[in-house]
Amino acid sequence: MSPTRIGPADDPAPRAVEFGRARVLITNDDGIDAEGLRVLERLVAPAVGELWVIAPDAGRSANSMMMSLRRDVAIEGRGERRFAISGSPADCVLIALQHLMVEAPPDLVLSGVNHGANLGDDLNFSGTVGAAAAAAVDGVPAIALSVGHGAEGHAGGHDFRQVEARGLDLIHRLCAAGFAPGGLFAVNFPDAPDDPDAPALIRPAGRQGRGFSLEASGPDRLRVRHHGDRGVDVGVCDYDAVRRGRIAVTPVTVDRTDHRVLRRLGETV
C-alpha cells in the first residue's frame, strides 16, 4: 500500500508508526465492556510493545469530540493499564495524554471496534471517530475502526470475524503508509463481506443526508433517532464500498479549513 497524500504537494511526509514496538492506546464510544473493544484488545495485545485501554464506563455514542467541561470526570481502575472513565471518548484521550500516560504517551490510538458503521456524514458525529480525531489534534496517529450492522440491526448483533481475520494486517499497512499531520484513518468493515480476502478500498466519505430525526417520547419530550448507514451518495465513496461487501478506508483530517475557498478568496475580501 503506497502512502495516501491528503494535502498539498508540499505537505510534510507521512509519519509511519512501527506497530510491533508501539505503545498503543485503545478507546471507544460503546463503553469499556463492549464486545468490539474486547475484540480489538485481544487482537492487538500480543502484537504491540505495550497496550493501554482507557474507555468510557458506558456507551457514549454520537459524542463526536465533546469534552466534559465544568464537571468532574471519574477514573476507575479495571486492571493493569486499563481504566474506565465517566466521560466522553475524547475525554479518555485527553486523560491518557495529560494524566495517565503523560510520562510515556501513546505512539498510536485505536478507537473501536464500533458497533455499527461510521460512514459519510456520520464521521462528524461519531464518538469513535471523535476519539481518534482528539488524538490527531494532539499529533498522535490514530485509526477509528467500525463494523456494520447486520440485516437485523442491533438485535442481530455484530459479526467481528472479518475484523479478527483482517484487522491486524490492515492496521500494520496503515501504520506503514503513514499519517499526515492532523490526519487519521476511518476504517469500516462490512457486516457481510462479499469476498473476505479482497483488498480494502481507499474511498472518500459519502453523504448520508438527514441521518437523525426526532420522535415524541412523552409530553414535551423528544428522542433523537439515528437512521444509520443509509447513504444517499451513489458515487464512488465509503458507502459504496461497504454496500459491495468491501472494507472502506477513508483518510480524514482535523483541519477544518476549506483550502479551495482560501485559494479562491486570497488574503482579503
Rank of each mutant, 00 (worst) to 15 (best):
residue 4 T to S: 14
residue 6 I to D: 03
residue 7 G to Q: 01
residue 7 G to F: 01
residue 9 A to V: 13
residue 13 A to K: 09
residue 14 P to I: 02
residue 14 P to T: 15
residue 14 P to Q: 04
residue 18 E to N: 08
residue 19 F to Q: 06
residue 29 D to L: 04
residue 29 D to C: 01
residue 30 D to Y: 11
residue 31 G to N: 14
residue 33 D to Q: 10
residue 35 E to W: 04
residue 37 L to Q: 03
residue 41 E to T: 13
residue 41 E to R: 09
residue 44 V to L: 02
residue 48 V to E: 02
residue 49 G to E: 11
residue 50 E to H: 05
residue 52 W to E: 14
residue 53 V to D: 11
residue 54 I to E: 07
residue 54 I to Q: 05
residue 55 A to Y: 03
residue 55 A to K: 00
residue 59 G to N: 09
residue 60 R to D: 01
residue 61 S to Q: 08
residue 65 M to W: 02
residue 68 S to Q: 10
residue 69 L to V: 03
residue 72 D to H: 09
residue 73 V to C: 11
residue 75 I to R: 14
residue 76 E to H: 10
residue 79 G to D: 13
residue 81 R to V: 09
residue 81 R to H: 08
residue 83 F to P: 05
residue 87 G to Q: 03
residue 89 P to V: 02
residue 90 A to H: 05
residue 92 C to G: 07
residue 95 I to C: 05
residue 96 A to F: 01
residue 98 Q to K: 06
residue 98 Q to Y: 09
residue 99 H to A: 15
residue 102 V to N: 06
residue 102 V to Q: 10
residue 108 L to F: 02
residue 108 L to D: 03
residue 113 V to Q: 08
residue 113 V to F: 07
residue 114 N to T: 04
residue 115 H to F: 09
residue 116 G to F: 00
residue 116 G to W: 00
residue 120 G to S: 14
residue 120 G to Y: 00
residue 123 L to T: 01
residue 131 A to D: 03
residue 135 A to E: 07
residue 135 A to F: 05
residue 135 A to T: 14
residue 140 V to K: 07
residue 142 A to I: 06
residue 142 A to G: 09
residue 150 G to E: 10
residue 151 A to C: 07
residue 153 G to S: 11
residue 154 H to I: 15
residue 158 H to T: 12
residue 159 D to A: 15
residue 167 G to C: 11
residue 170 L to K: 00
residue 172 H to S: 13
residue 173 R to Y: 03
residue 175 C to L: 04
residue 176 A to F: 04
residue 178 G to T: 13
residue 182 G to D: 08
residue 183 G to R: 01
residue 188 N to I: 13
residue 189 F to T: 07
residue 193 P to L: 11
residue 197 D to Y: 06
residue 199 P to E: 13
residue 204 P to I: 11
residue 207 R to I: 05
residue 208 Q to V: 13
residue 210 R to H: 13
residue 214 L to A: 12
residue 217 S to K: 08
residue 220 D to W: 02
residue 220 D to H: 12
residue 221 R to Y: 08
residue 227 H to C: 08
residue 229 D to M: 12
residue 230 R to W: 03
residue 230 R to K: 10
residue 231 G to F: 08
residue 232 V to F: 02
residue 234 V to C: 09
residue 234 V to T: 15
residue 241 A to W: 01
residue 244 R to N: 12
residue 244 R to D: 15
residue 245 G to F: 01
residue 246 R to T: 06
residue 248 A to I: 01
residue 252 V to N: 09
residue 252 V to E: 00
residue 255 D to R: 09
residue 256 R to L: 05
residue 257 T to A: 14
residue 264 R to F: 08
residue 264 R to E: 15
residue 266 G to M: 02
residue 266 G to N: 10
